[in-house]
Every structure is written in structure tokens, then in C-alpha cells.
Simulated scan of single mutants.
Amino acid sequence: MRRDIAVETVLPHPIDAVWQALTDPAELAEWVMPVEGFAAVAGQRFRFLAKPMPGWDGVINCEVLAVDAPHRLVIRWQGSRMRTPTTLTWTLTATDGGTRFRIDHAGFDGPTGVISALMHRSGWQRMARRRLGGHLGSRPAAR
């Protein structure tokens, strides 16, 4: 059994501002989690570093698979407890008055994948709608 996640929201910010929040390491750390070694360049390996919790050391090993600025960023995503990597795709589409932000996170396999997909879905919903939106809203208007 395979589970994939799709989360979508419209942000009242221009596509370039949203792209910067997805690709600038300092901004990325503000709305996702601390990041080490990130650059929006295909082949770049990096890590997200969350607070460790029982059963997980907080490390997510990643690699940038594809970049199509300012529309699409594809990342291989593998938490230290995940048996196989998943694929995370962030897609931006300019809309009247903002940017449609879509998250596709694919490749959650097996019974443990179902649980992992549910946990990731709620996390991505919170990050996309609240944390990214809040981060963008707190920035100065002109950038």
C-alpha cells in the first residue's frame, strides 16, 4: 500500500517572495525547521535538523533533485527512521493577488508508511498554511 500527500494553499504574496522563502536557508529554517547545507541546486545534499524525540533523532537527510525557479523544487526526503526515501515537490503558481503553493510528498510505502504519511500531512498543512503564511506576513513588504 502506498500513500501520497497533497496539500495546497493560496498565499497573498508574490511568487518571487514565496520562492525566496522556499530557497533561502535562513528563511527556510523559519517556517520548516533548521537546515544545514541547503542550496537550491540540483544534486545538493543537505539536512533538516528537528528537535529529537523518542524513536527519532530529528535528522532528515535530503537531496535537491530538480529546480525550476520560481515554480518548482523537488527534494529527496528521508528521515533517519524511514526505510526508503520519499519525494517532496513544492510547486508555485502565480495567481491574481498571490501564489498557489502546492506540496506533493510521495512514496510512503507499507503499513508504517500510512502512519508516516498521516503525520507528514498534518505537519505540511500546518507549515504551509500557518507557518509559511505567518513568516511571509512578518517580512517587510518590499524585498
Rank of each mutant, 00 (worst) to 15 (best):
residue 137 G to K: 08
residue 83 R to H: 13
residue 81 R to A: 14
residue 87 T to G: 01
residue 36 E to N: 14
residue 74 V to P: 01
residue 46 F to L: 10
residue 54 P to L: 10
residue 31 W to H: 11
residue 129 R to C: 05
residue 29 A to Y: 05
residue 97 G to A: 08
residue 31 W to C: 07
residue 118 L to V: 03
residue 23 T to I: 09
residue 62 C to F: 06
residue 1 M to K: 02
residue 40 A to F: 10
residue 140 P to W: 04
residue 90 W to R: 00
residue 44 Q to R: 15
residue 121 R to M: 07
residue 59 V to Y: 05
residue 70 P to W: 10
residue 99 T to N: 05
residue 10 V to Y: 00
residue 134 G to A: 12
residue 103 I to F: 03
residue 110 G to S: 10
residue 58 G to A: 07
residue 89 T to C: 12
residue 131 R to A: 11
residue 74 V to T: 15
residue 123 G to A: 08
residue 52 P to K: 11
residue 12 P to E: 13
residue 84 T to N: 14
residue 96 D to Y: 00
residue 126 R to E: 12
residue 42 A to G: 11
residue 108 F to T: 04
residue 73 L to E: 02
residue 136 L to I: 07
residue 74 V to G: 03
residue 53 M to N: 05
residue 141 A to C: 02
residue 89 T to S: 14
residue 92 L to E: 05
residue 95 T to K: 15
residue 50 A to G: 15
residue 123 G to H: 02
residue 80 S to W: 06
residue 104 D to Y: 00
residue 113 G to R: 08
residue 20 Q to W: 09
residue 54 P to H: 11
residue 143 R to P: 03
residue 111 P to I: 07
residue 109 D to C: 01
residue 89 T to W: 04
residue 35 V to I: 13
residue 119 M to P: 00
residue 105 H to Q: 13
residue 2 R to W: 05
residue 131 R to T: 10
residue 85 P to H: 14
residue 35 V to G: 12
residue 114 V to W: 05
residue 34 P to M: 10
residue 14 P to N: 14
residue 136 L to Q: 07
residue 23 T to V: 10
residue 76 R to T: 05
residue 90 W to Q: 02
residue 116 S to G: 02
residue 91 T to A: 13
residue 114 V to T: 14
residue 41 V to H: 12
residue 79 G to C: 08
residue 15 I to W: 04
residue 134 G to N: 14
residue 26 A to H: 13
